[in-house]
């Protein structure tokens, strides 16, 4: 039998996919059953995007759906199909868009950010590639670059002073953490080991990274 509801997770968060050929009452029942089953899986306060909500459900149905999700501590976010497919790596994502959500998710970017590309994310960011000169990474949480970071990295962009920036080769032209900015020296030295930048006593300091240890 075809499932009436499916939860899908991707880098944008959790989406609830509704089988539009099924009657609404049945959808609600199925959803309830799923949520009961997986109650522990969802953290309270998690936002669930419902891509079909606008086009497919009417006002009352939407309210019922949101009510049911709220019962399990989940927030219902309506969005069009398009919003979901939109690439997070848009050339210029407004910072304000990131400010509205408070979910701390880690975004994994499996490629190199090139000059002129700007990535804004409200959680932590891991880049499996390089950050080239002229590229910008802005994250609410920590930034980790598995390759070389030569662009601008802004961790803790919404004020988190504990945020850090780590890279296999940390040669960023600018490092920003919360409200502080540090720029590269005019004669940059080549970094030989993985390094982490963090705030110490209201200054951005760089030290050898202690990966995996705390």
């Amino acid at each position: 039998m075809q499932e009436a509801v499916i939860f899908k997770g991707n880098r944008d968060g959790i989406r609830l996919i509704i089988n539009q050929s099924v009657e609404f009452g049945y959808i609600l029942n199925q959803l309830k059953a799923k949520l009961d089953e997986a109650a522990d899986f969802f953290t309270a306060g998690t936002t669930v995007k419902v891509p079909a909500a606008l086009s497919f459900l009417n006002g009352q149905q939407r309210e019922e759906l949101a009510g049911l999700l709220a019962h399990y501590g989940l927030q219902c976010a309506e969005c069009s199909e398009q919003d979901v497919q939109e690439d997070v790596l848009d050339d210029a994502v407004p910072v304000s868009a990131g400010l509205r959500r408070h979910v701390q998710e880690t975004l994994i970017v499996p490629r190199t950010l090139r000059g002129g590309q700007k990535l804004v994310h409200d959680g932590a960011v891991i880049i499996d590639g390089d950050v080239n000169p002229g590229a910008e990474v802005i994250a609410g949480g920590n930034i980790t670059v598995l390759g070389t970071c030569r662009g601008i990295a802004h961790a803790g962009a919404y004020g988190n002073q504990e945020a850090t920036i780590t890279a296999k080769r940390l040669m960023a032209s600018q490092l920003r953490i919360a409200g502080l900015i540090a720029r590269a020296p005019d004669q940059p030295d080549v970094s030989t080991c993985a390094e982490t930048a963090r705030i110490d006593n209201q200054l951005i300091i760089i030290e050898p990274a202690t990966l995996g240890e705390e």
Binding site: G116, P133, G134, S173, Q174, I181, R183, A184, D186
Partner: peptide, 17 residues
């Protein structure tokens, strides 16, 4: 705009905010 170079030629790239 979008293909800036003058900052690099002037050696001022790392000062841009």
């Amino acid at each position: 705009i979008g293909l800036r170079n003058l900052d690099v030629v002037m050696g001022l790239e790392n000062r841009i905010v």
